[in-house]
C-alpha cells in the first residue's frame, strides 16, 4: 500500500451530488487509499454548526475533510455560508490550540479521482505527523 494507514481517524463529509459519487468513482477504479477514512454522505455541509467539528475532535477524530461541490453547490448560498463557517471554526480551533490543518475544506467532483486520493493521502500523512508528536 502506498500510504500506510494509522490509528488517527479521518472523517470525510462528502456531498451527495459531487464528492460522494466521486468517492465511488475511486472505488470503481479500485484505487486504494488509507482505511482510517470514514465517509459520511451529506446534502450540504453548511448544515453543521461550529460545535459539531469541535465535538468531533473532542470525540477523538484526528482529521476532517469536507468534500463539497464548491461553486457547483446546488443549494443557493450554501457554499458561501459553509466557507464562512469554516473560517469561524478555524478561529475556535486556534483558541483551543488545535492544529487547523486537521480540518480541510475542498471541492471534489464526481470523477475527480486523483484529487480525492491526494486529499485523503495528504490528510493521512498530516494526521500521522501531528499524532506522533
Amino acid at each position: 500500500m502506498a500510504t500506510q494507514a494509522n490509528e488517527g481517524k479521518i472523517l470525510i463529509l462528502a456531498t451527495e451530488t459531487c464528492a460522494y459519487p466521486g468517492a465511488n468513482s475511486v472505488g470503481q477504479a479500485h484505487s486504494t487509499y488509507p482505511a482510517n477514512t470514514y465517509i459520511l454522505r451529506v446534502r450540504a455541509p453548511a448544515l453543521f454548526p461550529e460545535q459539531f467539528y469541535l465535538d468531533c475532535f473532542e470525540k477523538g477524530i484526528s482529521g476532517i475533510i469536507i468534500m463539497s461541490c464548491g461553486e457547483e453547490c446546488p443549494y443557493e448560498g450554501a457554499y458561501h455560508a459553509l466557507a464562512k463557517r469554516i473560517d469561524r471554526v478555524y478561529k475556535m480551533m486556534k483558541e483551543r490550540s488545535l492544529d487547523i490543518r486537521r480540518l480541510r475544506l475542498t471541492a471534489i467532483c464526481t470523477v475527480c479521482n486523483r484529487a480525492f486520493l491526494k486529499e485523503v493521502n495528504q490528510m493521512n500523512d498530516l494526521v500521522k505527523e501531528l499524532d506522533e508528536v
Binding site: T17, P21, E72, T110, V111, C112
Partner: peptide
C-alpha cells in the same frame, strides 16, 4: 465548465 459526468449522470 462543469464536469460532464456530474451533470449527465444525474
Amino acid at each position: 465548465l462543469d464536469c460532464a459526468s456530474c451533470i449527465t449522470t444525474p
